[in-house]
């Protein structure tokens, strides 16, 4: 499955490509079976996909993952010429850290901006972006190349048509391994990861989950107030 937050970034990349030309290349670091899901990215209009896949990458934390992705980006650069913009989602749906974008920026030595709502302009080697901050927004002018993490729902992901889906079948998915991209093996996987997960546990959902669907709203309200009384939090007193 493609991370839902990444679809905004994919949509942004395709819109930028449609406006300014150039090429949109997708990069995913994942196990080989992810290839199927990547067809959806191609159907949305991305020109080609790179799947970085290697057992050596297993167990990578954000520092190691961002390193691996940055090396893959450099490899794309060698093949296709300079990369102007790297777009990420605001967070992944499994780890939700939002850290990969800034960390990739650091490995590449270029600016990064998180919580980008909209790319307003691209001109003369700069991008003007609107980003969210607590309580409002900031507009900034950023020298390219740069890494943006797209938070905006302003890039509503397109639903590919049947034609797009068929066209995507003819597009290329390159599968790269660690040696192929020239990764330093000591910087990826468990050895390259400073953090260790030492314990995991399931949290019981403490919520009662009593949902009243009575078509007579008055009945539902009585039930609700009764339950609250039992809980010792009678409303309104």
């Amino acid at each position: 499955m493609v991370n839902p937050y990444d679809k905004y970034a994919i949509e942004a990349s395709v819109q930028l490509k449609e406006k300014f030309g150039g090429k949109a290349v997708g990069i995913a670091m994942a196990p080989p079976h992810a290839a199927d899901a990547l067809r959806e990215v191609l159907a949305m209009g991305v020109d080609e996909m790179v799947l970085l896949s290697d057992p050596k990458l297993a167990g990578s934390d954000t520092l190691a993952t961002s390193y691996a992705l940055s090396v893959a980006i450099k490899k794309v650069e060698q093949r296709l010429g300079s990369v102007d913009l790297v777009l990420c989602g605001i967070e992944s749906s499994d780890s939700n850290t939002g850290h990969i974008g800034p960390e990739v920026g650091e490995w590449l030595g270029v600016p990064s901006v998180s919580y980008v709502d909209r790319i307003l302009e691209i001109k003369d080697g700069y991008a003007v972006v609107k980003r969210l901050i607590e309580g409002g927004y900031a507009v900034m002018k950023v020298k390219l190349p740069a890494v943006f993490s797209i938070a905006g729902t302003s890039y509503q992901p397109r639903i590919p048509s049947l034609r797009d889906v068929l066209a995507a079948r003819r597009k290329q998915i390159d599968v790269w391994n660690a040696d192929g991209v020239g990764l330093d093996p000591s910087l990826v996987g468990l050895v390259g990861s400073p953090t260790r997960v030492v314990k995991m546990w399931r949290i019981e959902i403490r919520r009662k989950g009593k949902i009243f669907t009575d078509s007579d709203v008055d009945v539902a309200i009585e039930k609700l107030l009764n339950e609250l009384k039992k809980d010792g939090v009678p409303l309104g007193v």
Binding site: L63, S66, N96, T97, H99, E106, T195
Partner: peptide
């Protein structure tokens, strides 16, 4: 995360 990556150390989010 930007600071952590520059120091090549680990970081846990949220």
């Amino acid at each position: 995360p930007r600071v952590a990556a520059r120091l090549k150390t680990g970081i846990t989010a949220d």
